[in-house]
């Protein structure tokens, strides 16, 4: 077993899944909204980037930016369609779950109808260079994946720490009731949240397309993994999501080299069940009184 291969795979997977999981986590804890249309946003931004690469330019950073922007757009779309009309109605959590699931199904079918079943692939946005030292070879897409996702996450976290909108989002994550008392509007803040988390999905879509293809249903597995990682890390905790992403990325890399890639989902869910047995609130689960009441 090649240790370096496992380690580099772990890091790459952890970065991509972590990005997605943090998006799920932030949406859940600030809006109380489990966004099951995340898979659609993921595929939608992949196609956005693909269209851009086909018709405008194949310049790597521009394709990446376009993917991120289409993700943000998809997030705003889902917010306007599934969050705004029902967020203050009774039984919102279940309704939101069903609404986003519906958007996911309709959205992915529309993508299938519009673009056809054939997978698309994106240009190599990070180039084709290689780094090799002391027998370890790192390809451009791996290095690029890690650097961009870490950069993007740092940027988002920094924005949430230092800006006024970020303060509003964090306030809403901690106590939605008190947030409305201090004058934070749920509807407006929800658009920021959904745009940001959509952008994270867009980034993950473009990054993952460097290894896999873009297809209408390509968002499903990443979404399931993201939701389970977010759950595993403790919904609402960014640090928890990062730790869970590393643990599950390691699990995926190890499973792939030891018993084969097709068993990944099985070992992953065994792992998640184990973690949730030991820590029912997830790795860093905070006692979320505001939502459990």
């Amino acid at each position: 077993m090649d240790v370096w291969f496992v380690i580099s795979n772990t890091i790459v997977l952890a970065c991509i899944y972590g990005t997605l999981a943090i998006g799920v986590s932030i949406t859940w804890s600030s809006l109380g909204f489990l966004n099951l249309a995340y898979g659609f946003i993921f595929a939608f931004s992949g196609y956005g980037a693909w269209l851009f690469a086909q018709h405008v330019s194949t310049f790597g950073p521009a394709v990446l930016a376009c993917g991120i922007l289409s993700g943000a757009l998809g997030g705003v779309f889902v917010c306007a369609l599934a969050f705004i009309p029902i967020h203050d109605k009774p039984n919102f959590t279940i309704r939101g779950l069903i609404a986003t699931l519906a958007i996911n199904l309709i959205g992915t079918q529309s993508l299938l109808w519009w673009f056809g079943p054939r997978s698309k692939n994106l240009p190599e946005i990070f180039g084709t260079w290689k780094l090799s030292f002391s027998g370890v070879t790192l390809t451009a897409d791996r290095v690029g994946n890690v650097i961009t996702s870490v950069l993007m996450l740092l940027l988002v976290l920094r924005w949430m720490r230092s800006s006024r909108r970020g303060l509003e989002i964090r306030a809403m994550m901690m106590n939605p009731h008190a947030a409305s008392i201090v004058g934070i509007g749920v509807r407006r803040t929800s658009f920021y949240v959904m745009a940001i988390t959509g952008a994270l999905a867009g980034l993950a879509a473009v990054l993952l397309s460097q290894t896999y293809y873009i297809s209408p249903f390509g968002g499903l597995t990443p979404m399931i993994k993201a939701v389970s990682i977010a759950l595993c890390g403790g919904l609402g905790s960014v640090q928890g999501a990062v730790i869970a992403a590393v643990v599950l990325g390691l699990n995926e890399a190890l499973t792939t080299v030891s018993i084969g890639g097709r068993y990944v989902l099985i070992t992953q869910f065994l792992m998640i069940i184990l973690i949730l047995l030991v820590r029912p609130r997830g790795i860093a689960g905070i006692l979320d009184r505001a939502r459990e009441a």
Partner: peptide, 15 residues
């Protein structure tokens, strides 16, 4: 009705 993770300063800002 506080935001338990925000600092005192951020809290005042949020008002």
């Amino acid at each position: 009705e506080i935001f338990h993770g925000l600092t005192v300063e951020e809290h005042l800002d949020s008002g």
